[in-house]
Design a protein around this nucleic acid. Structure first.
Length: 405
RNA sequence: GGAGGGGUGGGUGAGUGGUUAAAGCCACCAGACUGUAAAUCUGGCGUCCGGAAGGACUUCGCAGGUUCGAAUCCUGCCCCCUCCA
């Protein structure tokens, strides 16, 4: 039996909703080893902090002895999750799916315990599906039921397209629950409909309906939209310590508490205290954010890496100094790139086109650091003259190169 | 089967013969400020040549055509959406 405090930690922290809450608690207290379903779309192989919220929950339950079943959605990936007006995706080849799955799993197991996880592929059951199986599946539901779903309802009323395959998506995902006999399925709140169809289908097919664990949507680094790769407001679990730390530092202050809550193990009381301190302006939120960035970076890398990332952040970003490690570029290569500085910046990989180089120079974003002498700002796209070896170039805030022979 | 609408730069979306490398907004980049927070201000945002002024090239679904000149007109093709049945 878990203590009430433990149950609370499992069912409340970083959780948006559980359907059905008390059934789930009963299940949790039953002592049975639960099968925890998690699906993954192999057309999107990268994991970011938004996904981590749910993965952490899986991990907590694994630590209580439960079993994770990860489903590689090699069939549903072909349909595309009907969130928004996503155009039907091109079919992935088998090789692409395998490669994506490998990449995903490597990231997945940074949070989830591999020992208590099982990986299955949808094709294990859908590969054998016949048309009559599909018809049998569709026969269980009505259009009206599916139009209940927010996204469909909205698009329908706005006369925007809904592909028929999109209606199939929840069905296939639901059948996954039947195939693996899941006890609990995990997903974001935007997945509620899909998870509920699974629950319903299990009931129809004589299984015990799964519980649905809905995770809150994590707001991305822009502070406005849901974290997602396509919006480029994400922090990937595969990123370098420096990038991870830096991206977290760019979060708006108002997200600090939620990130602590969803993505760290810092005790709730302590988070509440931070929240109070910030409200009372008793702390500089930046310091809390540094702690947050440190915690998360250390989790995905390690303590020393996080400390290093912090040092680099303080040096490069806060003090505007040069980093220790800069890409090295050979002066010989630059000399032939000429004739002007803008050409050289392209050759050094600091800008993507001559025009961009000119813009940077015109805007005063290019600075030279000759060894032992004061830095100077390039204000005109003049004739390139090779600086002395050891000179560093900075373009904007965080693009650097060190020039050597 | 019938009727209608539409495909423009990363997104949205104006533009229906030259003043359009293509408004506005968003995103993004740089500068100032600063805590890579918030807020604000300024500039930039196709490529290449030129110190600059300026020039050249490529871009508005695809292929042709008309014209001194086309994102805009014509022809064919491809694709998408809605409504009625």
């Amino acid at each position: 039996m878990l203590s009430p405090a433990e149950v609370d930690r499992i069912t409340r922290r970083g959780v948006s909703n559980i359907i059905v809450q008390n059934e789930f608690i009963k299940l949790l207290q039953s002592g049975r080893k639960l099968r925890l379903k998690m699906g993954f779309d192999p057309s999107r192989p990268d994991i970011h902090l938004g996904h981590v919220v749910g993965l952490r929950k899986l991990r907590q339950l694994q630590d209580l002895g439960h079993q994770v079943v990860l489903i590689v959605g090699d069939w549903t990936a072909q349909i595309g999750d009907p969130s928004g007006q996503s155009v039907t995706r091109p079919m992935l080849t088998h090789e692409e799916v395998i490669a994506n799955a490998e990449s995903y799993l490597r990231q997945f197991f940074k949070v989830v315990d591999q020992e208590r996880a099982q990986v299955v592929w949808q094709s294990e059951w859908f590969g054998k599906f016949s048309l009559s199986d599909v018809i049998g599946l569709t026969g269980r539901f009505t259009v009206a039921q599916f139009l209940e779903r927010d996204d469909f309802a909205k698009r329908f009323s706005e006369h925007r397209p809904i592909a028929i395959t999109e209606l199939l998506y929840p069905l296939l995902q639901a059948y996954d629950s039947v195939a693996i006999e899941s006890d609990v399925e995990f997903g974001g709140t935007d997945q509620m409909f899909n998870l509920l169809v699974g629950r319903e289908l299990q009931g129809i097919m004589g299984q015990c309906p799964q519980q649905c664990f809905l995770m809150p949507i994590l707001v991305g680094t822009d502070g406005i939209q849901k974290m997602s790769k396509s919006l480029n407001n994400y922090v990937g679990v595969d990123e370098s310590p420096e990038d991870m730390y830096g991206k977290i530092m760019s979060l708006p202050d108002r997200l600090i508490v939620a990130y602590f809550e969803y993505l760290t193990d810092i005790p709730a009381e302590e988070i509440a205290e931070m929240s109070r301190d910030m409200a009372a302006e008793a702390v500089n939120p930046m310091n809390l954010k540094k702690r947050l960035a440190g915690e998360i970076t250390a989790f995905f890398h390690d303590g020393p890496a996080a400390a290093g990332a912090r040092e680099r952040f303080e040096q490069v970003v806060q003090r505007r100094a040069l980093p220790e490690d800069m890409p090295v570029v050979s002066l010989a290569a630059l000399a032939v790139a000429g004739p002007r500085w803008s050409n050289v910046l392209v050759a050094a990989g600091l800008v993507s086109s001559v025009n961009e180089g000119k813009r940077m120079i015109n805007q005063g974003a290019v600075e030279l650091f000759p060894p032992g002498s004061p830095s100077l700002r390039l204000v005109e796209d003049a004739q390139y003259e090779a600086p002395e070896p050891g000179t560093a170039i900075k373009v904007g805030r965080r693009r650097f190169a060190s020039l050597h022979l």
